[in-house]
Amino acid sequence: MTPILQINSLKASVNGMPILKGVDLTVNTGELHAIMGPNGSGKSTLAAVLAGREDYEVDAGSILYQGADLLEMEVDERAREGLFLAFQYPVELPGVSMMNFLKTAVNSVREHRGLRPLGAAALLRLAREKAALIHLDSRLKKRSVNEGFSGGEKKRNEIFQLAMLEPRLAILDETDSGLDIDALRNVADGVNGLRTNDRAFVVITHYQRLLDYIIPDFVHVMYDGCIVMSGGKELALELEARGYDWISENGVPA
């Protein structure tokens, strides 16, 4: 097994306020890790630091991605190297057409991998195939990126982009939040269809519900900026049954 992501003693802050207080996590290729935890525990901060958001300051620790120092890489470089973040709040881009956006994104990633850029016809074919996979309304492809999309459509669009860009490591930041049960199933179907031996997932979620459909290999619980518990998929069920209070009551280091 090859580690694709190695996070060592990561500490990060926003505006001088420490959020991550020493995170350790190793993700191997082919694995799907779920990170659960109450609001404010640092889950989304971890996703933001991995994607390279500038307003997050890394104070200590290291992140190795495919053996290289991730923190030295620009946001777009990380993406071209195969790291994908599905946004918790996907951004609306009025006037940027879906196809033009996909073409630019897909071809910049392909170029980086030494592949020939896709022409309009090939891209359209690929988009049709991938959209079907996650039940994305094909009419959305004719619109501006996320503009006027419903909450569910925006989240499905994130998974659609994931499918188009074929990353090595995908981080899903609360992709299940705000989804009804049908949209949740579509998103889960999409993710399950994209699980391969050479791709890893980190699924960040507040609720266990998503993990009924996406079965994780590992579950980690974040609390106050640290991963305080790790286990198999049964840990998610235990958390569901006992609630997050169970963690604090069980003598978690403060």
Binding site: F84, P90, N100, F101, S108, Q161
Partner: peptide, 16 residues
């Protein structure tokens, strides 16, 4: 940031 997180360089993202 969204565009760059999809692999677009800063100039590409700005132009788009």
């Amino acid at each position: 940031f969204y565009l760059r997180a999809r692999g677009l360089t800063m100039p590409q993202a700005r132009t788009l």
